[in-house]
């Protein structure tokens, strides 16, 4: 018995959500009285691999092969399952990222394992039951899910657990599993990544705006505020439907669900579908000229006022604050 964590990388670097997954997996391994192995796939340098030790991995399996340099979930699932067999791991942890969502279910089927995707807390193991709390009904509720299978797979929501350093050093071991060509029929042609933007699902701070902004050309101040904060930008459904902002920025029940430390909603009234996608944010700020906007009911801080007056004041205050 042991725990295996898959840590996603991009351009040779691990992401914060990956370190969160390692920290989470370490806490589970401690609870089960066993050790944690991490697996990395793609070309990652030794010093970066060593980082995983800081968060509790005692061993890192390094799969570095040109065949696997791009993410193909079918092949990655086979590699991770082979690593699980080699390490005698019965619990596999990964991030509930876009890639994780395509990977975890394949791992679960291969291991005949129950899967909790979107986990928000550590598992509970009372009365011989292994239960994990996850988001359900788009943030309107949580579902406590029992995994009844021998093997278990958990995909952890980004920004739900945080990172925890634990004094430790990882040994790095090269792992060269055989890759079936039938696992590589989907071919990655192109990867387009905006490197100057903070990705919304990973963001700790998010500045979001809605129809109250009146027109797409008014987003300049939203972007300036986000840049000053180091925040990602988001929007409401009507705004992405109107083509003012890309669909990838739409948060809410039919967009993406996020749980940043700070969510600032500007000119968004707070329809139930929008609230569903953001209600697990730790702190919510609402700026709206309508004092009756439903969003104020779930906000921690509110400003009743015109976005075009309030936002420039915030930008000024932030500049002063930063000195």
């Amino acid at each position: 018995m042991s725990v295996l964590v898959y840590v996603e990388q991009a351009d040779g670097k691990f992401k914060k959500s990956g370190f969160e997954a390692v920290s989470y997996a370490k806490a589970i391994a401690d609870g089960q009285g066993t050790h944690l192995t991490a697996i990395s796939i793609g070309n990652v340098g030794d010093s970066e691999l060593k980082e995983l030790g800081k968060y509790g991995a005692s061993k890192v399996l390094n799969v570095s092969s040109d065949q696997l340099k791009n993410f193909v979930n079918q092949a990655y699932a086979s590699v991770i399952v082979e690593a699980a067999a080699k390490e005698n791991a019965d619990i596999v942890i990964l991030s509930n990222s876009f890639s994780g969502k395509g990977l975890a279910p394949r791992i679960a089927v291969k291991l005949k394992a129950g899967l909790v995707d979107g986990a928000v807390e550590l598992p509970q193991t009372t009365d011989g039951k292994f239960t994990v709390k996850k988001n359900a009904f788009s943030g309107k509720a949580f579902a406590v899910t029992e995994l009844t299978s021998v093997n278990k797979v958990i995909a952890l929501n980004p920004n739900a657990f945080g990172t925890k350093e634990s004094a430790g050093d990882a040994t790095i071991e090269n792992f060269t599993p055989e890759v079936k060509t039938t696992d590589l029929t989907a071919i990655v042609k192109e990867i387009v990544r905006a490197t100057d933007k903070i990705s919304l699902p990973d963001a700790e701070l998010v500045v979001s705006a809605g129809r109250g902004l009146k027109a797409p050309e008014n987003w300049g101040m939203i972007e300036e505020l986000a840049n000053l904060l180091g925040a990602a930008t988001a929007c409401s459904k009507p705004v992405s439907d109107a083509g003012w902002r890309p669909h990838s920025e739409h948060v809410g029940q039919t967009g993406i669900a996020i749980s940043p430390n700070l969510y600032i909603a500007i000119g968004i009234s707070g329809a139930i579908q929008h609230l569903a996608g953001v209600s697990s944010s730790k702190v919510i700020v609402v700026i709206n000229k309508d004092p009756e906007a439903p969003f104020f009911k779930v906000a921690d801080y509110g400003i009743v006022g015109d976005a075009f007056e309030v936002v420039p004041k915030l930008i000024e205050a932030l500049k002063a604050h930063k000195g």
Binding site: L115, K129, A141, V144, E146, T148, Y301, G302, V304
Partner: peptide, 27 residues
């Protein structure tokens, strides 16, 4: 392999703290 044993609803948030618009910098 898996079953939902119970549902929970999120804990309600405390009352909203209002900041007057003219003092937005306070936020």
């Amino acid at each position: 392999v898996a079953k939902v044993v119970k549902f929970e609803t999120p804990a309600p948030r405390g009352a909203v703290k209002q900041v007057p618009a003219e003092e937005a910098a306070k936020l």
